[in-house]
Amino acid sequence: MSEDSIISLQNVNKWFGDFHVLKDVDLDVKKKERIVVCGPSGSGKSTMIRCINRLEEHQEGTIIVDGIELTGNLKNIDSVRKEVGMVFQQFNLFPHLSVKENITLAPIWVKKMPKLEAEELAMQQLEIVKIPEQANKYPGQLSGGQQQRVAIARSLAMKPNIMLFDEPTSALDPEMIKEVLDVMIDLAEGGMTMIVVTHEMGFAKTVADRMVFMDEGRIVEQAIPEKFFNNPESDRTKLFLSQILNH
């Protein structure tokens, strides 16, 4: 683990029942680094990033986030979750709360922020994701792209140091993908540490500091985007790239 790394996975192994989903995964992420993880479905990409905020539990190895090791210790898990924001494929907004309430929920209850201050904060976050005018609507009234941007705002309101994105555009109609990616690019330019699981290779090329390719639970290859796309080492990576780039 290097000095300035903010996330460090060492020898992480995980099983779902008998199924070995993560095999000896090692990953170091530096502060402000933007990592894009790709790979075929079932390769363990989502599981890996879900282990980073302990939505999934790893069985072997160590995961250290911002100096805190993730173990069964609930206090550690809580403090890690305050540092790490997550955006899901299915948005997972709270349908019974308005957009503003979705965003203020955690600041008010977790950080004990006064309501007015939290609402101000919510409006700032909505400005960042460019939909302040939707503040009083309910998630069901928004398009997929708008919902995903609210989800991003909801995570940002907790002022995380790290953002995890789990296929954030996979459930979106093609014409809405761009508005979400634009927000993510803004975030990246703002210096956020990001791990993004996505198949949007255009986005990866613009934003990623490093590409991580996973297959069958292993990290097969890691490289800077230029090298990864133009001159990949492993045959498995070449095959994968040829399939997703030439269609």
Binding site: N53, G85, N92, V110, A151, R154, M158
Partner: peptide, 12 residues
């Protein structure tokens, strides 16, 4: 997903 989202923003 509702549980996961709630957990991920730090709710107890």
């Amino acid at each position: 997903g509702q549980y996961e989202a709630a957990r991920s923003i730090g709710l107890s």
